[in-house]
Design a protein around this nucleic acid. Structure first.
Lengths: 303, 303
DNA sequence: CAGCATGCATAAGGTCAGCTTATGCCGGAG
DNA sequence: CTCCGGCATAAGCTGACCTTATGCATGCTG
C-alpha cells in the first residue's frame, strides 16, 4: 500500500506546539524540553519540507503562509490521536478479563466476585472459566488463576493456597460424634463420596492401611461444592480443599480436625504478565484478591 | 493549554502499519526497517498503553479489541498529516518569491522573466523589488538578487556580473561619428544625462581631467533604462551597466567602445539560503538564471 | 539613551532510544 | 517429520536528539 512520506513525527509534534504558542520557548515548556531543542526540530522540519514555517521576527516568531496552512491539520491530527489513545486506554482499563480454573471459579471466586464489583464499579469483569492453561500471548486475558508450581517466566505470581485436601465436617456432627483423636476414627463415620481418590490418598498419607472405598455407602456427589454443602448440613465427612472453605470454618459451618495433604505440592496462583503489573485494573484485582485472601487468613487465625 | 499524553509517535506509526498489514514483517518492509524493530515498537506501545494491541497467533498476529478500536483513528490521523504535508510541500513549491533590487528587476530580470514562466508553468512567481537587503530569516523570500561583495554567511552565492558602468551608444551613431580612439573623443559627443555621477567617475578613471557636467546639455532621464533606450535610438552616448545590455550589444543595438569601471568592486549576486539549495523551485530558478546569463555571455563571445 | 530583559540561533558534546544482527521458538504445511 | 514462515528476545552499536552554554538582535525601561 501507500508509502507515506511523512516528516519525522517528533518534529511535527514540536511544530504543532510551537505554532499553537507562536513561541519556541513556550512550546519547549509545554513539551518539557529546552528552547534549543525546539529550534532544532523546527529547523529540521523546515529543511525536510523545503520551506520555512516560521518567520523569525524580533522577540517573536510568526507562521509563514505555509506554516499557517499546516498548523490546523497537525493540531487536528494530534488531537485525533490523543483522544483515540485516551479512549483506548479508558476502554482497555474498563474490562477486566479473568481466566480461571472452573473449580476455583465455583468454589472461591464466584462467591466473592460481587464484592469486587461493588468496590470497583468502573471495571466490568469477564470471567472465562477454562481448564486450559491460559497463554497471555494468544488469549485476551488480563489475569488468570492457575494451579501449578508457580514457576512461570515473565509472569508475576502470587500464591493463594495449596491444592490440597483434608476431611471436613460440620462442627455439630463433630460434637454429636465426640472428639476425633486419630484419623482412623473417621472410618466409623459416614464419608461423603468415599470413592473419591482423595480419601484413598489421604488415609494412606495418614498411615492408615485398611481403607476400602467399596466398604462405604456411595455418597458421591461429583462436585466438591455439593459435598461441602452436604458436610455443612451434618450429613457426613467430606474431603475438601481447605483453602476454599476458610470462611466456613471461621463462621462455624465446617471444621477440619486433621491436617491437609497436598498430592503434588501444587498451589493455586494468581498470575499476570509482569509487564502489566501496574495497569490499574490489574492492580485493582490483585489488591482486592490478596485482601480477600488475607481476610480468609485472619478469620482463621482468630478462630 | 492541554498537555497531550501521547505515546511515542514513532511507535504509533509502526502500529498503524502493522495493523494495516496484520503482519509485523510486512509492516517492517513498508517502513524500511526490520521485523525486530516493529516487534520492539509494538511492545513498547502496548506497555505504554497498558493493554495488548495484538494477539500473537501462530503465523499471524491479530488485533485485540483495543487494537481494532485504535487502528482506524491512527490511520486517519496519519493520512491527515500526510496529506497536509503533501499539500504544504506542493503549495510551498509552487510559489517562488524573488526579492530583487529595483534596478536589476527593471533592467535585467523583468524582460527575461517571461521565459522562466514559460519554462516552469507550475511555478508562480512573486517579485518583490526592494532596495532593502532581504534577510531570509524574517522575510518570506526564496531567492534574492543583491549587489555587494558576495560574502554572506549561510547563503549560496552566484556572481552574475559587476556593478560597473561604461559609455555605450548605438552602433549607427558610432558609424556616423567615426571610430572612437580615445575616451576623450566622447567629450565631443552628446552625452545622455551628463550630470550623472558615473560620467564624472568614468572620465576620471580614464585619466581625463577636463570633464565638466555643466558644459553639456542636460539630457538626464533619471533612469538607466530610459537612457539606454535613448542611446539605442542613436540620441547620444549613455553611461550604462554593461551587464544589463549584453544582448543588446549582441544584436547590434548598442556598442561599448571603452572598458567598464566598477566603482566599488561590487557584483550582482543571486543568493539563497544554502540549506534550501535543493528545493526544486529554487534550483529551477537558479538553473534558469545561470542559463540566461550564459546565453548573454555566449552572444557576447560570438560577437 | 544606556542597560537590561527577552527570545531565537548555534556550537559542542553526551546519552539513550531505537535500530540491526543473530538466534530461538512455535506451529502448520508439505 | 521436517521445513518454513512469522514473531520474540538478546546483545550491541550508533546517530538522532537533547542539553548546556553562549551569542546576537531588539524592544523596553528608568
Amino acid at each position: 500500500m501507500r508509502h507515506r512520506d511523512l516528516p519525522p513525527l517528533a518534529a511535527i509534534r514540536v511544530f504543532e506546539a510551537a505554532a499553537r504558542h507562536a513561541s519556541f520557548t513556550r512550546a519547549a515548556e509545554e513539551l518539557g524540553m529546552t528552547q534549543a531543542a525546539v529550534s532544532y526540530q523546527i529547523k529540521l522540519l523546515e529543511e525536510r519540507l523545503g520551506a520555512p514555517l516560521f518567520l523569525r521576527r524580533p522577540r517573536t516568531v510568526e507562521l509563514t503562509p505555509t506554516g499557517r496552512q499546516l498548523a490546523p491539520a497537525t493540531s487536528e491530527a494530534l488531537d485525533l490521536l490523543a483522544s483515540a489513545f485516551a479512549a483506548a486506554r479508558k476502554d482497555a482499563g474498563s474490562v477486566l478479563t479473568v481466566s480461571v480454573l472452573p473449580t476455583f471459579a465455583a468454589h472461591w471466586l464466584a462467591p466473592r466476585m460481587g464484592r469486587f464489583q461493588m468496590k470497583h464499579p468502573e471495571i466490568a469483569v469477564r470471567i472465562t472459566a477454562t481448564r486450559a492453561v491460559v497463554d497471555f500471548r494468544r488469549e485476551d486475558a488480563d489475569v488468570a488463576i492457575r494451579s501449578g508450581l508457580g514457576e512461570w517466566e515473565g509472569l508475576t505470581v502470587h500464591p493463594l493456597f495449596p491444592v490440597a485436601f483434608a476431611p471436613m465436617l460440620s462442627p455439630k456432627l463433630l460434637e454429636r460424634h465426640g472428639p476425633l483423636t486419630s484419623p482412623a476414627d473417621l472410618l466409623d463415620m459416614l464419608l461423603i463420596d468415599p470413592g473419591d481418590r482423595w480419601w484413598c490418598l489421604w488415609f494412606a498419607a495418614m498411615g492408615i492401611e485398611g481403607f476400602e472405598p467399596a466398604g462405604h455407602p456411595d455418597a458421591r456427589m461429583g462436585d466438591q461444592h455439593l459435598e461441602a454443602r452436604a458436610a455443612m448440613g451434618g450429613h457426613g465427612v467430606a474431603i475438601l480443599t481447605p483453602g476454599f472453605y476458610r470462611q466456613e470454618v471461621e463462621i462455624g459451618l465446617l471444621a477440619q480436625p486433621f491436617p491437609a495433604i497436598s498430592e503434588t505440592g501444587q498451589n493455586y496462583f494468581l498470575v499476570y504478565p509482569a509487564a502489566r503489573r501496574n495497569v490499574p485494573k490489574v492492580r485493582a484485582f490483585r489488591d482486592w484478591l490478596l485482601d480477600e485472601l488475607e481476610a480468609d487468613e485472619q478469620t482463621r487465625d482468630k478462630a
